[in-house]
Design a protein around this nucleic acid. Structure first.
Length: 977
RNA sequence: GCCCAGAUGGCGGAAUUGGUAGACGCGCUAGACUCAAAAUCUGGUUUUCGCAAGGAAGUGCAGGUUCGAUUCCUGUUCUGGGCACCA
């Protein structure tokens, strides 16, 4: 009776499904546990071995928690809207709904093979109208909300209208326009359109303008991803930045809360730090500089203390004042410069340091304290979206300003005396200011306070907290996304749940279904494809919004839908939400650090404020899974043959020469080259080619590394026969081997089809079974770490499972479990293992728990142990890792009649894991010299005496007196001389 | 360019709180079983000097703190992730 996973695994999969073992109820006496994987996007390429890494980890944890007596929610679904499906539709004409459905089906098949305990009855798909109905509904809640800064809370627009009606906006300045001010009486006189324009400037979900990549040739807006090296990825057409009307989410209002409540989360410090940096809170001042010819430039600075060092000012090229202040002489140059900047991505603008660009506007500002004339420039290194889009440049104190001043020969004012050396800005915050009027002689901290005070007294600015975080763009000019439940009545946007629209039942109804289109071509003027469907766009009350929502719309709240996935009356019932609460553990890649994870935190806070849910952070604990990279294999082609004249050369199957890695590495050496040439000649002569072909061997052939499909490589050794079968053109491949092997080169890269390094989990499961696959992925190393995929260690894990099996079953005799009582030694092995495994699982260290299981099985089999008392608990312990095997042992061998999933994880007993003596490493001057065993409760003085009388120690002391003896109980002993 | 992370034998990795560096597995190697192979089992395997006993060096690199550093600090190199419309 062998370990026959091909029979065992399908059998139990069917059993679990038939008995609905994974079905989770919203009612239970057990404590709840919610463990969630990040939503996958179902790509056309299917799953590769990297995807399941996190799912296996969460599956192990989920099963473990269940065995520990929790009611565990462990769902899975799909983030099914997205650009790739639409791109595919444009190329092939297939509807994204159809290809997405196919991809999902494929994903599901692949996931099922690995034996996950997902409750599939709770599956959600963001592209399902039953789902996006609620995405749209939640959008409407955000549209009907504003942020009350006084209360630090999301409130309804109705509430804001009330405030305006009773007191105007004096207590609630407009976040988009602080100069906006009106009284209660003025509010009453505004026509409806103006009222709504004002309200729009307060809404959490609001309309504004923003830049997008526009490609004239394709007539469409492109994602950053689709712009490569400044041209469109498709077709290589020129692109430029273009202003377009867009929906936004006012996440900036939540900035401080998003920052502060990070402290309450069990996320890695790195993850929190990334979010903190993204939010980018900085304290400083806003200062207005009057221009010579009227107008003012407002800047934000974190260093108001350096104001006496201001030598010039820089506006973002998009700044609205640029056109106003530019003098006639400079207008042409400024226009040309602006044109240049349009072709530049923000990334390029920020990262370019070597090449300094900019243009003088011809205008001058007046320094508020010195009265000096300060030239005003524009440059790409100042971004419109950060701060006020303008800076005061202090070359002696800021490196970029310094570079700029040097490059354009702007004289530099030194405000740091000898601290500034003339070559590099002095950006440190230590030392005293000089040459700075009333700030001279002060240190930075003092000077900042004094400067702000002076600025405020002079009424030219104020203290200000600034955030790098920007409002989140919420529109895509695309088809495959959620349509907005918005209709423009005379050009004014209304929610479909507002008067007058809601009077019409058809228009009121959610979801606003994504209409069918025949073409995915963009609409006029960069609008999405929906703009082409006039029937759909034009409604009784006006035109529909033709943008769709971005990918993160559906994924910002999906964790709530799993709690109550089939609810048609609410996005999820409050009862279900209160029962499951926060996600206890969330697993996914760190690439979502500042996108998805920040957006869903914001949605959660808004929903909490609006009383829809009872917690304001979605993910209590976060585990970042590393990436499994591809390990690309290279073979080395020698282009040795050529023909002078003959056409037949092209159609003839010539031998192709590939050299093993060693020869490639040393190809520059004459020895190697001659050896290779001799070999080629030797092989070639065997072919006996007709001389009429005119084929010759090159004396100086070049060698080209070629990526080869990893699936025909075993470790680093090429399976030459499999390679030849791969494609007809390889049939005559000839290999120049080393030690009779063809060794490939390798490189670690992203796993992708184009690099021939994709490994499909199906193949691994087919060959070794799901249990081996699961354990092997965990055994590779810590979940959080990225590592290249390599199949070469999988044999070891598979051997381990077979060995474990042999503890329970014999090839000839069948089950060999006995009822004999366990010995002390056996119990020690068992309990040590139980302890280690539960501790390791709790800290997500699955690689070491697999090791421990291996150690246990090795030790038990060397004791020849087949005892039920040991092996039954051991079967439960391995369940999270190898559920199929465990279930087989549980029911077939150990004779249980219910699923092992309903077993209880055995607790370890302290008495079997404590030792009473320790073999101490004894060091002399920090170098370990000998091992001596002492009881743990032995007195230090006695130990010291014995140590000093040890022969080896005596030898190393060499007659010298020990200065000090360091004894750390249970750890080590060190003798210092 | 900025932010975050990682680097340990031939390979994946272990060392959980500053306390024996290399657990476990792969690979390699020697042997047992076998007509043979597969499977399985036993031993060896960081490098280096040495017949051995035993020594020396060693956790990307350069320093530092400490009785003691893979672990803490400073600097640095390389690799990976993110940088706001890929998801």
């Amino acid at each position: 009776m062998e370990y026959d996973f091909r029979n065992i695994e399908p059998k139990w999969k069917e059993y679990w499904e038939k008995n609905q073992v994974y079905k989770v109820s919203n009612q239970s006496d057990k404590p709840k546990f919610y463990i969630l994987d990040m939503f996958p996007y179902p790509s056309g390429a299917g799953l590769h071995v990297g995807h399941p890494l996190g799912y296996i980890a969460s599956d192990i944890y989920a099963r473990y928690k269940r065995l520990k007596g929790f009611n565990v929610l462990h769902p899975m679904g799909y983030d099914a809207f997205g650009l790739p499906a639409e791109q595919y539709a444009i190329e092939t004409g297939q509807h994204p709904a159809i290809t997405t459905e196919q991809n999902i089906k494929r994903y599901r098949e692949q996931l099922d093979k690995i034996g996950f305990c997902f409750d599939w009855s709770r599956e959600v798909k963001t592209s399902d109208p039953h789902y996006y109905k609620w995405t749209q509904w939640l959008f409407l809640q955000l549209f009907h909300s504003w942020y009350n800064r006084k209360e630090n809370k999301t409130k309804t627009i109705a509430d804001l209208v009330n405030i305006f009606q009773t007191e105007g906006n004096k207590n609630h300045p407009c976040p988009k326009d602080e100069s906006l001010s009106f009284t209660k009486a003025e509010w009453e006189t505004y026509p409806e359109k103006e009222k709504r324009d004002i309200l729009m400037k307060y809404r959490i979900a609001y309309l504004d303008y923003a830049e997008v990549w526009w490609c004239e040739a394709l007539g469409t807006v492109l994602a950053n991803d689709e712009v490569v090296n400044g041209v469109s990825e498709r077709g290589g057409f020129p692109v430029e930045r273009k202003q377009m009307r867009q929906w936004f989410l006012r996440i900036t209002e939540f900035a401080n809360r998003l920052l502060n409540s990070l402290d309450s989360l069990e996320w890695t410090e790195a993850m929190k730090e990334m979010q903190r940096n993204w939010i980018g809170k900085s304290n400083g001042a806003e200062v207005k500089f009057k221009l010579e010819k009227g107008a003012e430039i407002e800047v934000f600075t974190t260093r108001p203390d350096t104001i006496f060092g201001v030598d010039f000012m820089v506006l973002a090229p998009e700044h609205e004042l640029v056109d106003v202040i530019t003098t006639d002489e400079q207008r042409k140059a400024i226009e040309e410069y602006k044109q240049y900047v349009k072709s530049r991505s923000e990334r390029e603008r920020m990262s370019e340091v070597k090449q300094i660009t900019g243009c003088f506007t011809g205008a001058y500002a007046i320094h508020p304290f010195t009265g000096n004339k300060i030239p005003v420039w524009i440059s790409e290194y100042v971004l419109a979206g950060y701060g006020t889009g303008a800076i005061m440049a202090v070359p002696s104190g800021d490196q970029r300003d310094h570079n700029f001043a040097k490059h354009f020969n702007i004289p530099i004012t030194n405000i740091f005396d000898s601290l500034y050396n003339g070559n590099e800005a002095y950006a440190d915050k230590t030392g005293k200011l000089q040459n700075s009027g009333f700030l001279s002689g002060m240190d930075v901290k003092n000077a900042i306070a004094t400067a702000i005070k002076a600025i405020e007294e002079k009424n030219i600015g104020k203290r200000k907290v600034n955030y790098k975080l920007r409002d989140a763009g919420f529109s895509r000019q695309r088809y495959w996304g959620e349509p907005f439940p918005i209709i423009y009545v005379d050009g004014v946007p209304y929610g479909t749940d507002e008067s007058p629209i809601k009077e019409n039942k058809e228009l009121y109804k959610l979801p606003v279904e994504l209409p069918h289109v025949d073409s995915y071509k963009p609409g006029p003027e960069g609008q999405g494809p929906l703009a082409n469907i006039t029937d759909w766009v034009n409604t009784l009350w006006g035109k529909r919004e033709t943008n769709t929502m971005p990918g993160y719309a559906g994924s910002s709240w999906y964790f709530l839908r799993y709690m109550d996935p089939h609810n048609d009356n609410e996005f999820a019932s409050r009862k279900a939400i209160d029962y499951w609460g926060q996600v206890d553990i969330y697993i996914g890649g760190s690439e979502h650090a500042v996108g998805h994870l920040l957006y869903s935190r914001m949605w959660t806070k808004a929903m909490y404020d609006l009383g829809l849910i009872g917690f304001d952070e979605p993910f209590k604990k976060l585990i970042n899974q590393g990436m499994i990279q591809g390990s690309t294999r290279f073979i080395y082609f020698v282009s040795a043959l050529y023909s002078y004249e003959n056409e037949a050369f092209k159609n003839f199957h010539f031998p192709q020469f590939y050299i093993s890695k060693h020869f490639f590495d040393t190809y520059n050496l004459d020895n190697t080259k001659n050896y290779v040439l001799d070999k080629i000649e030797e092989i070639f002569s065997k072919y006996n080619l007709p001389s009429t072909l005119g084929v010759q061997i090159s004396k100086t052939p070049t060698v080209v590394p070629i990526r080869v499909d990893v699936n025909v490589v075993n470790g680093n050794e090429l399976d030459t026969e499999a390679f030849k079968k791969l494609r007809p053109e390889y049939a005559n491949a000839e290999f120049i081997k080393e030690d009779d092997k063809y060794i490939c080169g390798s490189e670690t890269e992203k796993m992708s089809k184009s690099k021939y390094n994709v490994v499909n989990p199906d193949d691994i499961v087919e060959q070794y079974g799901a249990d081996t696959f699961r354990m092997y992925e965990m055994f590779l190393g810590p979940v959080e770490m990225s590592k290249p995929w390599d199949t070469k260690g999988i044999e070891g894990v598979h051997r381990f499972l077979k060995k474990m099996w042999r503890s329970y079953a014999d090839e000839q005799k069948g089950w060999i479990i006995t009822d004999e009582p366990a010995t002390e030694a056996e119990l020690r092995i068992l309990h040590k293992t139980l302890k280690k495994i539960s501790e390791d699982i709790e800290r997500f260290a699955f690689n070491t728990s697999v090791s421990q299981l291996m150690i246990a099985v090795n030790e038990l089999s060397s004791l020849n142990c087949h005892k039920k008392a040991i092996l039954q608990p051991l079967a439960i312990a391995i369940t999270p890792f190898a559920p199929h095997l465990a279930e087989e042992l549980w029911q077939k061998c150990l004779g249980n009649t219910t699923s092992i999933m309903d077993a209880t994880f055995p607790a370890y007993e302290e008495k079997y894991v404590t030792e009473n003596s320790k073999k101490y490493p004894v060091s002399v001057n920090g170098k370990p010299r000998v091992e001596i065993e002492f009881p743990l409760d032995m007195e230090q003085s006695l130990i010291e005496k014995e140590v000093l009388s040890n022969d080896t120690i005596k030898k190393w002391l060499d007659g010298k007196e020990p200065k000090k003896i360091i004894y750390v109980k249970g750890k080590m002993i060190n003798v210092v001389v």
